[in-house]
Amino acid sequence: MAGVKRKYVVPGDLICEGNYTSLANVMKIGNRFYSTRIGMAEISREGVRVIPLSGIYIPRVDDIVIGKIIDYSAFAWEVDINSCFSAYLPAQSVFGKNFSPAKDSLTKKFDIGDLIAGKIIAFDRTRDPLLSVSGPGLGKIPKGEIIKIAPSKIPRLIGKKGSMVKAIENATKCKLNIGQNGLIIAIGPPDGLLLAIKAIRLIEEEAHIADLTKKVQKLLEEGDKFEKVD
């Protein structure tokens, strides 16, 4: 985007002065804008934001997350979504309106230890996040390799309009199912999986580097050659 100014900041750094809107991770005192996180500050026409480079996952409405069922009651499952809050998946949203706790057993759908992909449909500071599994690609995850990375690096892994994921998927013939909470499910041939994990680890380690896409592409190409020699 044209007219976007970027710089590295730590908490307390003055980002800029003037008439802007604060978008994310920015503290406004008078007309001065200070960063509240370590990361990349972006000053654009819409406002000032800091893209954090560390931190745990804080749920947001409409995020797709990958979670593990840790408990259930008569009405809902409790899901560990790798955050400081555990999410709830109400049984009614899975069984439908005619759900009756007397007739339907929750374990028929999901049991403790099952992995699911879900969407956060409600979350605010007073209540724990609420999940839904209705939608394409959501629901129980039957197979795949699970990869865990820092949630703050997920935007980098996805890339601009999903360019980075597409590059990895095409080169490794794997399907990557990415949760915003830092969990990734990869399905594909073993060689591809190993290469995909390598690429993901590279992105996690060097998320702050500007031309990361090129570096990842190089790694993926070299991986390809290696396979052909074999």
């Binding site: 730590v10 908490p11 307390g12 991770n25 503290m27 200070y34 509240t36 996180r37 370590i38 954090p52 480079l53 560390s54 931190g55 745990i56 703050s152």
Partner: peptide, 11 residues
């Protein structure tokens, strides 16, 4: 605390 990515006013 800054490394942990917790929102801070300043160091």
């Amino acid at each position: 605390l800054a490394d942990a990515g917790i929102n801070m006013r300043d160091l």
